[in-house]
């Protein structure tokens, strides 16, 4: 049976892992390669590097971080943050990424999704959606959650899938960094609307939160950062908890 994936996210800035609350007030958590090595041993299923403040100048640094992390793990590795062009994506993949995650760039130039899917296959293209509750729907935000768009998360996820995305990485801005649980309602709304896997992100605080997002949230994978980085919870213990609750995981 296909396992539900537990994904560790490394939010990287200037080559160091940081993690903030609601995308602000970043605090330092360490060396990306060292963290990746630990996760590999602990049985994490996948690693995502998000270059949270990626700039033009940061491109070189990003490739070095990708290479350093890829050196440590024989696991799928996705990279996002500041990937705006086909060249950016190619550089990340060349450095060792298996997938690239597009966010702002996908909204601004949706054709990039198709271009990359044709060049590398859909499995290499993740569209990241940062969304916030707005009345009766889920509004899409860009630029690290600071800028609203006119898009609805469910509609945008559908379009991204139609254009060739292989996965959706859905982050709840309301929940991100709060450790109060994933936004299961939003995750389910997107996950049941698209024919591709959805990774839930934002709000992981307890093992119970993961069980919820895999059941009521209909998530195919769940991503967390801070709860793993500070050694508060081990990946193994989380998976044992999920297995006992009947959620298929890789142990």
């Amino acid at each position: 049976m296909l396992s539900k994936r537990i994904i560790a996210c490394l939010d990287v800035r200037d080559g160091r892992v940081v993690k903030g609350v609601n995308f602000e007030g970043l605090r330092e958590a360490g060396d990306p390669a060292a963290l990746a090595r630990r996760y590999n041993v602990e049985g994490i299923d996948e690693i995502v590097i998000l270059d949270v403040t990626a700039t033009l100048e940061a491109r070189q640094a990003r490739a070095q971080t990708i290479r350093a992390v890829a050196q440590e793990i024989f696991l799928p590795l996705a990279v996002g943050g500041g990937i705006r062009t086909e060249d950016d994506a190619a550089a990340a993949i060349e450095a060792g990424a298996d997938k690239v995650s597009l966010n702002t760039a996908a909204l601004q130039q949706p054709a990039l999704i198709t271009t990359l899917a044709q060049r590398y296959g859909s499995q290499a293209v993740v569209v990241a959606i940062d969304a916030k509750r707005e009345g009766g729907h889920f509004g899409v935000y860009v630029r690290s959650g600071s800028t609203g768009t006119a898009r609805d998360a469910v509609d945008w996820a559908r379009e991204a899938a139609d254009r060739g995305a292989g996965e959706i990485l859905l982050t709840s801005i309301d929940k991100d960094g709060t450790r109060s649980g994933f936004d299961c309602e939003m995750t389910a709304a997107v996950s049941t609307a698209v024919p591709i896997p959805v990774i839930a992100s934002g709000g992981a605080g307890t093992f119970e939160h993961f069980a919820e997002v895999f059941t009521t949230g209909c998530a195919d994978a769940a991503l967390a950062a801070s709860i793993f980085h500070f050694n508060e919870h081990s990946v193994v213990a989380l998976k044992q908890f999920l297995a006992a609750r009947g959620v298929p995981v890789r142990l």
């Binding site: 049976m1 296909l2 396992s3 539900k4 994936r5 299923d45 859909s122 499995q123 292989g166 996965e167 024919p195 591709i196 896997p197 195919d220 994978a221 890789r250």
Partner: peptide, 18 residues
């Protein structure tokens, strides 16, 4: 993959399987 009878499956088949 995923063209058979329900339940509808997500495609691509991504992840760890036994």
């Amino acid at each position: 993959l995923g063209t058979g009878t329900p339940p509808a499956l997500k495609v691509p088949h991504v992840g760890w399987n036994s």
